[in-house]
Nucleic acid binder design. Structure first.
Length: 692
RNA sequence: GCCGGGAUGGCGGAACUGGUAGACGCGCCAGACUCAAAAUCUGGUGGGGGCAACCUCGUGAGAGUUCGAGUCUCUCUCCCGGCACCA
């Protein structure tokens, strides 16, 4: 709202009725949303941190300041009542009623308010712009010391947070400090470090909770907590304020002045007010013959949509043209999917049976908005009796995005991007990329940054092209192998080729094996050293892949481990019956471990390996602990923390034996010779460090 | 500006609880096979030194803690995500 009472949004004049006015009271659930973050153990810690911060619970004090020539006090909210004696000015949001009222007989202030309106309203825009303000021409009286301080309208005060008005303490707040210096206002120190050290608040604001109050009359010499409590009590006793808990979280404006979206099913009647569309008339369907021109929603210019009759009195009425924020629908689709054929209800028992979602996967960019709205909406549905659970998503995996290299040419300031598939790179003897040229004309192109795939950068890759060439298994294997799922995935056609090569190698290995006579049943008690080692590798791999897939979700390291096993199996030249039995065991394991990632190839190879069953019906393999057991362990020997040798000791070797072995190592002796051994550190199963 | 994340060979990444930095793959180099090429196979591949055994430097920059730091602490740089009407 500007100084003349007109409605504005993102710097553009809008109809007053276009100002969003449908809200969901998410703040009513702030406390529960905050507390329950502690229970979301299947969520990444960074998402939980971001949500806590977004909700932003704070304890503070609301205080009334009397305003000159006004009956209305100015109520402010502060989390630092201990600094109340340092207030040297006040600031209100440009759209604050006090600023608007003062602008009526102050055209210059009106102009300033209108300028503030144009700078945008996003938090990022407000925080980064130059802090500007203008005196509204009145003073406020500090109730604690009776001082009159000027009131400013300021562009950095948010109307939507707190009371839209702040007390300014330049000595102990960075933003107030910057503003006070720019406007030549007093900076008065009222708290000092608790440890008695000195600070210069004229230079820089001093902000800390570990303080003692000074220059604060009867409230001097107090800690933060004592000052908070005593000043809070003082204010409450006089009825000019109260201690309150506030949240940074704002209510959710679900109105959008857009065509695309679910219409808000409300009819505006001059007599009856806002009347819900009767259930029998739902859903309200968007008109499809729409001219998308000019500003705002085209619905507001369509009488055939707008004009209707009031369901209550039957008189002339108009439809609501606001549509719902898409976040509204994304807040409950996961439940609706379980009962999508039900036209009689929003959700039924089937939805309640399936939720909460065991494993939810989505981009990290949804950490606060979508994932907080969905949690809120789930609680609404719970309180409406639709579901029994408190939270929508038990486990959350936030995946990274797909990025790819960009190539371009610049001509007369105009940049043209070329698809990676149409470009050939050149490199030096070490493989470092030195340049790139377009395949069609052979002339050079610039190598740009690696960026999120987009049409404008022409760096998108259609997975279908790769699926056509290599098959879906290869493309899946590549995507799972290239990065862990929570990091970005850098697309590379050449690396897809690598995944294809691996599958071909495995295919050949299996076929070479099954062409021989089928192996006997494995007798694990009678193995040679080589055979035991290979068998250990098989079972170590089963154990590692089970952990990577089941606990860590690091599919890239799981696949790397399977590749290592395949390399080890391929190196084996043991053609004895026992050797072939181990090969069978190893290949069975490889195919079972890969089945979730390359289902088609695994299905075929499982049959080739002589099994009658279908692999999708098979159980996940279990590692044999006895096969993993070792008689000896390899230890690293360091001298002063630097690697100097390796020793092999019996797994039952005591500390004394290990120390002796370590010191006998010839390379270790070279570094120990002639020096006094000050300490011997033995880390069981890992290393020995000799400190000289 | 605030909140969250990240930086490791030519490249993607590994190192999970402070204990062998560079697993696995790509790329590159050399060799085998071939008339030749492709495909495939074998070997090599962080920088520097050394015939070699090995030595030395090295995980964005700088400091610190520790017997030992990619990993912990502090300061800083750059990049990415979010900041409520992009969805």
């Amino acid at each position: 709202v500007d100084s003349e009472g007109r409605g504005w949004r993102s710097g553009a004049l809008v109809e007053r009725r276009e100002i969003p006015h449908w809200f969901l009271k998410i703040t009513d659930y702030a406390e529960e949303l905050l507390e329950e973050i502690d229970n979301l153990e299947g969520w990444p810690e960074e998402v939980r941190k971001m949500q806590r911060d977004w909700i932003g619970r704070s304890e503070g004090l609301e205080v009334d300041f009397q305003v000159e020539r006004s009956n209305e006090p100015l109520r402010i909210y502060t989390t630092r009542p201990d600094t109340l004696f340092g207030v040297t000015f006040m600031a209100v949001a440009a759209a604050h009623p006090l600023a608007l009222e003062s602008a009526k007989d102050n055209p210059e202030l009106g102009k300033f308010i209108d300028e503030c309106r144009r700078t945008g309203t996003s938090e990022a825009a407000l925080e980064t712009m130059e802090k500007r303000g203008m005196r509204i021409g009145r003073n406020a009286i500090n109730p604690l010391n009776g001082e009159a301080v000027p009131i400013f309208a300021a562009n950095y005060v948010l109307m939507s947070y707190g009371t839209g008005a702040i007390m300014a303490v330049p000595a102990h707040d960075f933003r107030d400090h910057e503003f006070a210096r720019d406007n030549g206002l007093e900076i008065r120190q009222v708290v000092s470090p608790a440890d008695g050290s000195e600070v210069n608040v004229q230079e820089e604001a001093y902000v800390s909770y570990d303080i003692v109050t000074v220059n604060s009359d009867q409230f001097s010499g107090l800690s933060f907590k004592d000052a908070f409590d005593q000043i809070g009590e003082w204010v409450e006793k006089r009825g000019i304020g109260e201690r309150v808990v506030r949240y940074r979280l704002r209510d959710w404006g679900i109105s959008r002045q857009r065509y695309w979206g679910c219409p808000v099913p409300i009819i505006h009647c001059d007599k009856c007010g806002e009347v819900p569309v009767p259930e029998s008339d739902l859903p309200v369907v968007l008109p499809e013959d729409v001219a998308h021109v000019g500003h705002g929603s085209p619905l507001t210019r369509m009488p055939e949509f707008l004009d209707t009759t009031c369901p209550r009195c039957g008189g002339k009425a108009q439809r609501e043209t606001d549509t719902l924020d898409t976040f509204v629908e994304s807040s409950w689709y996961y439940a609706r999917f379980a009962c999508r054929d039900n036209d009689g209800a929003m959700l039924d028992e089937r939805a309640n049976y399936w939720v909460p979602v065991d494993q939810y996967v989505g981009g990290i960019e949804h950490a606060v908005l979508h994932l907080l709205y969905a949690r809120f909406f789930h609680k609404l549905m719970r309180d409406a009796g639709l579901v029994d659970s408190d939270e929508p998503f038990t486990n959350l995996l936030t995946q990274g995005m797909v990025v790819a290299e960009t190539y371009y040419r610049e001509k007369n300031g105009k940049v043209t991007y070329y698809a990676p598939a149409d470009v050939e790179t050149t490199h030096d003897a070490k493989g470092k990329v030195t340049g790139a040229k377009l395949k069609t004309d052979g002339k050079p192109v610039e190598v740009g940054r690696v960026e999120k795939m987009s049409k404008s950068k022409n760096n998108g890759v259609d997975p279908q092209t790769m699926i056509d060439r290599y098959g879906a298994d290869t493309v899946r294997l590549y995507m799972m192998f290239t990065s862990p799922p929570d990091q970005k995935l850098e697309w590379s056609d050449a690396a897809v080729e690598g995944a294809f090569r691996f599958l071909k190698r495995l295919w050949k290995l299996v076929h070479a094996h099954v062409q021989q006579k089928s192996p006997p049943k494995l007798n694990a008690d009678k193995l040679g050293d080589e055979q035991r080692n290979l068998r250990r590798k098989i079972h170590e791999t089963i154990a590692k892949v089970s952990d990577d897939v089941g606990r860590r979700y690091t599919f890239n390291t799981a696949i790397a481990a399977v590749m290592e096993l395949v390399n080890a199996l391929a190196r084996s030249e043991d053609k004895t019956p026992t050797g072939r039995a181990i090969m069978q065991e190893g290949l069975d394991a490889v195919v079972l471990l890969l089945a979730p990632i390359v289902p088609h190839a695994s299905h075929m190879l499982w049959r080739e390996l002589g099994h009658k069953s279908v692999i999708i019906d098979e159980a996940w393999p279990v590692a044999d602990d006895a096969a993993i057991e070792r008689d000896t362990i390899d230890l690293v020997v360091q001298v002063n923390g630097k690697l100097r040798g390796h020793i092999q000791v019996s797994k039952s070797a005591d500390r004394r034996t290990i120390e002796t072995e370590a010191l006998e190592n010839s390379n270790v002796q070279r570094f120990v010779e002639g020096k006094a051994i000050r300490k011997l550190i033995v880390v069981p199963g890992k290393l020995v460090n000799v400190v000289v």
